[in-house]
Design a binder for these strands. Structure first.
Lengths: 222, 222
DNA sequence: TGGATGCAAATTATCTATAATTTATGCATC
DNA sequence: GATGCATAAATTATAGATAATTTGCATCCA
C-alpha cells in the first residue's frame, strides 16, 4: 500500500512534484531532469515525462522542446494576473453556488475561517483558506470552472509560501466573515463584491511586520 | 519539411487530433486507442500518450486510468459553463487590453468582422470570429489568461461545428461592430458589457432557419 | 429455457529498457 | 581571444515485457 494504487504512476509523481513546487521545496527555474526524478521514484522516464506534461498544464512547470523542463518562474506580474483571473472566476462560481448554499455549508465555512485564524503556520492557514473557498464555491456544480480555479489557487499558494517562508503571524480574517454574513442575509451582490476585492488583493499591498519594517513581501489573504 | 520540425512529435500529434475533435471528424465518446493512432502517424505509442495528456488538459479528451482515453463528450450544460467562463475572462482581458488598442488593431478587427460576414461556411466564419476576439484581447499581454481563453474557445468551436454541420447562412455580426464602435469611442464599460452578452449567448437561444422551422440547434455567435 | 456466474483468451493500457538525436561543454587550434 | 571540432549529457523516440481489463464462452442454477 504505497499511496492509492488505483492512480497511475504519472499522476502520483506529478502530485508529489506539484507539492514540492508549491511549497517552495524546489526553487523556481530549477531544471527537472527526468532521469533523476525517475531514479528517485524508482520508475522509468516515461511516466515521469507524463507527469511533466501535467505540471505544465497546471502552470507549475514550463518546457522548451528538446531543452527540458524547468520549474515555472513567477514574478509579481503573473501573481497579479492569476489573482485577477481568480477574482473573475470565483465570482462567477459564487453566483451559481449561492442558491444552493445551505446553512450547514455556511457553518462549515465559518469553522474553516476560525481554523485559519488560529493557524500557527502558513501551511495550515493555507489549508483552511482553501477549504473555505472550496466550500462556498463547490455547490455551483461546474466542474470545469472549479478545476480552473483550483489550478489558479495552486499558483497563489506558491506565492504565499514564498513570501512567508518561516514567519507567520495569526490574523483575523474579516473578509471571510463579511462574505459569510452577506451570504446568510441573501445579499449575493455584496458577497460577490467582497470576494472579488478579497482575492484581487493578492500581491498588491506591501505589508508591515510587527517589528515595524516594511517587508518586501505582499499582502496575501486570498 | 513535414510540419515545423522544431516541435516535438507529441505536440504535432496532439494538434492533429485536436483539429479532428473540434471539427467533429471524431465523434464524442469515441475511444482513442494509442496503438491505432501510433500506427497512423507512424510513431510509437509513447509520444501518442503524451499527446493524449495534452488533449486532456485542454478538455478535449477524458481518460480513466487503465481504461484508456475517449473523446470528451459535451452536453449543453458544459457549453453554457464554458460560455460563462469565456464571458468572465474575456471581459477581464478586454479591460486590460483596452488602453493598448491602437487604431490599426481596431481596423484589423473590423476587417475580420467583414470576413466573417462574407463567410460561406462555418469553418471560415469561425476562423474570422477567432481572429476578431484574439485581435482585441491579445494586447492585454496576460499570457496565462489568453491561453485559458483559447482552450475555452476550442470547446465553443466544437459546439459550433456540431450544431451547424453543413448548412450555414451568412449573417451580419452586429455585436462585433457595436463592440468596436464602443472601443473607438473610449466607452470601455459598454464594450465589455456587449462582449459579455455576446459570448454568453452561446447555447442559450433556439434559432430559426430560413425555411421557418425551429432547429434543435442553438444560437452561436461567440 | 432463460439468466447469472465463473473461467479463459484476447485486447489494451502501462511500464521498463534500449537506441537515436539534439544540445551543451571543453579543449585545441588558428 | 575567437572559432571549430570532439566529447559528454540529456531529451526524444522505439521496441519489447508486464499487468490489468474486457469479452466471449461454457457451465450451473432457477
Amino acid at each position: 500500500m504505497t499511496s492509492e494504487q488505483k492512480d497511475t504512476l504519472a499522476i502520483r509523481i506529478s502530485r508529489a512534484l506539484a507539492d514540492r513546487i508549491i511549497s517552495g521545496a524546489i526553487e523556481p527555474g530549477t531544471r527537472l531532469r527526468q532521469d533523476h526524478v525517475a531514479a528517485e521514484f524508482g520508475a522509468s522516464h516515461v511516466p515521469v515525462r507524463e507527469a511533466f506534461q501535467r505540471l505544465e498544464a497546471q502552470g507549475l512547470a514550463v518546457s522548451e522542446p528538446r531543452r527540458g523542463v524547468r520549474v515555472a518562474a513567477f514574478d509579481l506580474r503573473e501573481v497579479r494576473e492569476v489573482a485577477e483571473m481568480r477574482a473573475a472566476l470565483e465570482v462567477l462560481a459564487l453566483r451559481h453556488a449561492a442558491p444552493h448554499l445551505t446553512r450547514a455549508i455556511l457553518e462549515q465555512a465559518e469553522e474553516a475561517t476560525r481554523a485559519g485564524d488560529k493557524s500557527l503556520d502558513v501551511r495550515s492557514w493555507e489549508d483552511a483558506n482553501r477549504r473555505f473557498h472550496t466550500l462556498i464555491l463547490a455547490p455551483c456544480a461546474m466542474p470545469r470552472l472549479l478545476a480552473a480555479i483550483d489550478d489558479l489557487h495552486a499558483t497563489s499558494a506558491r506565492f504565499l509560501f514564498a513570501a512567508w517562508r518561516s514567519e507567520w503571524e495569526a490574523r483575523t480574517d474579516h473578509d471571510h466573515r463579511a462574505i459569510l454574513s452577506a451570504l446568510r442575509a441573501g445579499q449575493i451582490d455584496a458577497a460577490a463584491a467582497t470576494l472579488a476585492r478579497h482575492v484581487q488583493w493578492i500581491g498588491t499591498k506591501p505589508v508591515r511586520t510587527s517589528s515595524g519594517g516594511t517587508r518586501e513581501a505582499f499582502s496575501i489573504v486570498g
